[in-house]
Structures are given as structure tokens and as C-alpha cells.
Design a binder for these strands. Structure first.
Lengths: 358, 358
DNA sequence: TTGTAAGCGTTATCAG
DNA sequence: CTGATAACGCTTACAA
């Protein structure tokens, strides 16, 4: 970096002091309009862009917020990132994005980079987070907002996703359709959000007076393969479920695959409900009935949580909630008493073993 | 930001000067190992994280590279971003990511932010780019790398995607299957990459001695809807094509939808080839035959292009190329002479109007 | 309303 | 090998 075009040159050109240039550019109203105009002319003429690092150093404010996610390639995150950045930019903040890649080691490096860049707040939208990291942040007074991570403290906010709401709606829906044996494709139980979804499911079926049968809950990774494997186990039961709810949409899609492979049809033989409402769910055939969790709302609220603590000093953390709602599409249908297995096999196009399911 | 925990405190604790702390932390070998150890102990004890902004200011190097994309929600980009960041981090660089949202105004703001943060290079992976912006960058000596944007200059590199390669392979494939009337779903002609793909297509069919028929090229936006609309037009022709190639995968998926809506089947009645090889293409039914363009390779090469100019001073820009290759899946099949229309309608499940296509 | 000058936390030069 | 100290480019009291 050759020597910067700096504020002093601009000041010289405008015939004022550097302080005045700074004030004019920051829109302080204690600058005579005429003077300000001269400054801006000089700025334009020289194509001057203030050095953000010097600015941060001088002012003590980085005007940057950190956003930690697991993996930008996970379809859950792009929307969240986009909305977080959009709202941040609106308020004059930059977003510093980092990925943990689901790796605790990298989480550590993410936090380090945030600290080095003196972010004014951090949104941690991933599940993996150890106490130690949190301590590093909050001991420095950096506001933090979590996704579904328990307690609100001094400068620690939390966004609580109301899983039980959407899951309740889904169970009501299935119940109304006549389903009584409902399976659950659980995410990995070492994942907080997966555990929460599962308990919401269990609570829900209890509410409907359905007895809890452990074998109807099968665990798998939050991916298509995970859903396939878990569904295979469900279908192998003596009395397989007539409907199932998945911990996320990818698992639900995997379920549809497995069901199709067994010569069964969705929703005629088995109903499937997903969770998250990723775009992909609208493209499957049949389109996936799912529980929507708005990622853009998540991003906005994460920003708002940080912003609130930032602007009004002395502000404690707060709890925000994001609702979830059932979106009914084509993957759920009425329960049929008829024997299911093979009932519709004859409808499958010849030579195609699996049912088309997107 | 209350007063930072700074290098001086560390120096004091370690009983050395600030210069020594700096040297130790930067791994300069002119520090006695024993001294370095004392420094690191102090660093650990205090949980010291150097201020990146001060560092940048002091050293004149931001160790940051800009990455400008259109929209992180476009499935084309996450992989590219991820690989760019990964390689950058490996080499000790940070990535500053910004989205243009396909909006020239925002592109301007993206460049401004890059300049303010004194990035050492910028990868511009979007099509929209006006001369003026480019000038702002290169007049400051900032290396730039473009995606498919013509000429290589002083510090301007370019990544050239060999569209014609994959498209040629696709046409060979279709030709070998017996197809002679091949339609093309073109992207918007104001988009450079779309134009390039189209001319590669035209060149390809000429090579096979197929006459160019303008009506077989239909334009649409690079989305599912665009593909649907363009395909409708193709199917409405007196002699519709028996195969078609799309400018990107989303359009190809749209094509499959439109084809299904007409009671036709893929690939029995019409073969479809996509472009890009986004993950979604593997999930459609039938799985999409497509031309793979490796986004992670794009990201890596973009970084490499910048890095090369950066490290070896005096380095001019260079041209890099990324190949594209046909990936054969299930959406292409042999040409059938039989009348196509309605031939398979009876196989459609009752009550389902469109063929399941993912 | 404007100017002067003391920070901000590093790095880098130059002696020692 | 290590220590002073002058940059780096901006902001912000404090004065005027």
C-alpha cells in the first residue's frame, strides 16, 4: 500500500483544517454549509476515500458486527446472512461473516478474528459454542446474541425459536387427517436445536393423547441421507407410522426418497412434514408440507438484539422470539386404513424403481 | 470500545519493549526464543488480541481481499465464497464479502467499502461492472480479477470459463443419441456470460452441420420461471425440438416442469441438459444431465490470481481458465421417431397434471 | 464555526 | 537481539 491519499491532502485542497474535513464528512452540523461544500468538492476531485482502519482507531468504534454461522453452503444460512447484512448496512454497520464449518477449532478462530477486528457485537447463529469463547467475548463487554441458547444475561441476548408452535400445528394437521401413529426423524441429539425440536414433538403427541413409543423416534444427521436412513428404520417396524415429521427439510426429503424406494407413495401411503421451509421444499414432487422458520426474520432480530444493547448503554440482553408456522403443501394427506404396502405400486411408471420425489 | 488492552500492557507484563512484543507475535526470527516465550506467556495471561486496525495502519497492509458477488442467495455463489475464503485464510488473508444484489448502485457502494477498508485486491465475480468503478480500483493499484470479462491488463486478471468445451460435449452427446433439432434456452442477452454460452451453442451446432434456426433459441431470465416460459415457446413451435440445452440449471429445471405440464416426459420425449451443476440438479427426477462448472475452482483461481500479482511485485495480470464438462445423468435419452405428444400420458398417476420433475 | 494537537494501537527504522 | 520513537490516518477535546 503506497502512501494513502489522506485527509490532510483533502484539507489542503479545500483550504481548511483536517478537523473540518472530518467533521464535514461525518455530517456534523457544526460546519458552515459553504465550508462543507468546499470540502466535498475536494473529496470528489481527489476521489478520496477515508481509511476505515484509521477511522476505527481514532474513534474507538469499528462500526462492525460479527456474524458467525456454520457453513454458508448450508441452505439455511444465506437468507439469514443477507437480511442481517441488509439491516446492518441500513444502520451504518458492516457485517463480518465467518464460518465455523461445524468445527469447534474454527469457532475459536472465528472469535479471535472478531476480537482482533474489534467488532462491537457478535451474532452466533450456530449451535457449537463453548463457555470459554463466550467468556472471551463478554468479558470484553461485547454484546452477543445467540440462537436458541438458553439464558439471557448481562449483555447476552437470545433468539428463541418457538418450535413447539409450528410442531403443534403440524400435529394438529396430521391428527385431523386421521393419523395416529406418527414418526419423528430426529436430528443428532448432540445438537441443541435438534433436541428442542424432538421434545416439542413429544410434548405435542402427548397433548393429543398419543402414547409415546420410543421406536417411532429415529435419529439421523440433518441431511438427506440422515432422513433416508432413519426412515428405513421406521418403515421396517412391525407397525410403521402413517405419517412422519422431520427435524429439518433435508431429512424430510430423504424420507420421501426412502418411502418411494419402498414402493410407497407420498402422501397417499405416508404423509411427510418437514421443518425450516427451505426453497428446495417447494420444488420436490409432491411439494413438501413443512414448518416455516423465517431465516430473514432471524437475521433481522439478531441485528436488532445487538443494536439495542449497543445504542442504549446500560441495556441488558433481551429475549426475542421467532414463531414457526405450518405451511401445508402436497406431502400430507388423509390416513388410509387400507393395507398400504404395495397398494399403489402398479401406478409407478415401468422401469422406475423410486417414486419421483424431488 | 473502552480503552483497549494494548501491546504496551503486554510489553510491561513480559518485561520487554512494545517492539519486541510485536516482533515476537509476528514470528520474526530475530527474537531470542526465551524472550519470545515470555512474550507469549504474557499474551496468554492477559488474553491479548492485537488490534487489527492498528496493525493495518502501522504496517500499511490490510491483509484483506475483497470478494464481490451478486447475491449470496443465488446457489451459484456459496461454494465460490467458501473456497475463496478457505484459500485466503490459508495464506493469512481475510475476505471481505459484499453483494451487489444485481444493482449497479450497490456495486458502487461495494467498491467504496473495499476502498475504505484498503483491501489489497478485489475479485469481482459478478457481471455488472462499469468502467468507472474499475478505474477507481486500478488507479489505486489494486489488483482485480474478473470472471469472464475480456482483457487482461496491468494488474487486471481474468478467469475465462471454457463454456464451449462443455457445451461441445453436450452437443456431441445429444447428437450421438440421435437428436438433430436442439433448442437452446438462452439467458438474458444483456448478461455477458449468457451471451457467451449462446454463441458457444451456436458454434457447436454449426460444427455438427446443423442449420441454425433462430426460433430454436429462446431467451429468458436465469431462473425456473425463465426456463418454463422459454420452453413453452419452444414446445409451441410447429416442429418442436427433441432436445434442449439451457443456459443454467434453474432454467433447465423450469424446462422439465413445462415439458411435464404438456404431458411429455423427460427424457423419453424430450431430452434436457442444464448448465452449472448446482446441487439441486441431482435431486430432480429425473436427475439432470448438466455441464459442470466448478465454483470452488473459480474461487480458488480468483484468489490465486490476486495472490500472484500481490506477492511478486511487478506482476502483470494473467488469464486463467476453468474448464466445463458434461455430467451425464438421467434427463437425456435417445431420440424417438414416434409421435411424441401424449404417448405417455396414460402413465401419469391419476390426478396429477404435471410430471414429477423435482 | 474552525483550528491545533493529543491520542488511538500497531509497525518499522534506526541505534545500541 | 532489543529498545526508543517516528510514522500511519483519523477523531475529538480544547481553544480560539
Amino acid at each position: 500500500m503506497e502512501k494513502d491519499l489522506n485527509i490532510e491532502l483533502v484539507a489542503r485542497k479545500a483550504g481548511v483544517s483536517t478537523a473540518t474535513v472530518s467533521r464535514a464528512m461525518n455530517g456534523l452540523d457544526c460546519v458552515r454549509p459553504e465550508t462543507a461544500k468546499r470540502v466535498w468538492e475536494a473529496v470528489r476531485a481527489l476521489q478520496y476515500y477515508p481509511n476505515a482502519h484509521a477511522r476505527t482507531l481514532g474513534s474507538g468504534r469499528s462500526r462492525t458486527l460479527g456474524l458467525i454461522i456454520s457453513d454458508i453452503c448450508n441452505p439455511f444460512f444465506p437468507d439469514l446472512v443477507k437480511s442481517f447484512e441488509a439491516v446492518a448496512m441500513e444502520r451504518g454497520y458492516e457485517a463480518l461473516l465467518t464460518n465455523t464449518n461445524y468445527d469447534p477449532k474454527r469457532m475459536k478462530s472465528c472469535v479471535r478474528r472478531m476480537l482482533e477486528r474489534r467488532v462491537e457485537g457478535v451474532a452466533i447463529m450456530t449451535s457449537e459454542m463453548d463457555k470459554e469463547m463466550l467468556e472471551e467475548l463478554s468479558s470484553r463487554g461485547v454484546p452477543v446474541v445467540f440462537l436458541d441458547a438458553g439464558k439471557v444475561e448481562n449483555r447476552i441476548s437470545n433468539i428463541r425459536v418457538r418450535y413447539s408452535q409450528g410442531i403443534g400445528e403440524a400435529l394438529d394437521h396430521l391428527y385431523a387427517l386421521g393419523h395416529r401413529r406418527i414418526g419423528f426423524l430426529s436430528g443428532p441429539s448432540n445438537l441443541g436445536s435438534a433436541r428442542t425440536r424432538r421434545s416439542a414433538f413429544l410434548k405435542g403427541i402427548r397433548k393429543h393423547g398419543i402414547a409415546e413409543e420410543p421406536e417411532l423416534v429415529q435419529e439421523g444427521v440433518h441431511r438427506i441421507e440422515g432422513g433416508e436412513a432413519a426412515t428405513e428404520r421406521l418403515l421396517a417396524l412391525a407397525r410403521p407410522p402413517s405419517a412422519l415429521l422431520a427435524s429439518n427439510d433435508l431429512m424430510a426429503i430423504g424420507a420421501m426418497r426412502a418411502i418411494g424406494r419402498h414402493g410407497l407413495r407420498v402422501p397417499e401411503d405416508v404423509s411427510v412434514v418437514g421443518f425450516d421451509d427451505i426453497e428446495l421444499g417447494q420444488l420436490t414432487v409432491p411439494a413438501l408440507t413443512t414448518i416455516r422458520l423465517s431465516r430473514s426474520e432471524l437475521g433481522e432480530k439478531a441485528f436488532r438484539a445487538l443494536f439495542r444493547v449497543l445504542e442504549s448503554e446500560k441495556e441488558k440482553g433481551a429475549e426475542y422470539t421467532v414463531e414457526t408456522h405450518l405451511v401445508i403443501r402436497q406431502s400430507t394427506g388423509p390416513f388410509k386404513h387400507a393395507t398400504r404396502r404395495g397398494s399403489s405400486r402398479s401406478l409407478l411408471p415401468p422401469g422406475r424403481k423410486t417414486l419421483p420425489i424431488g
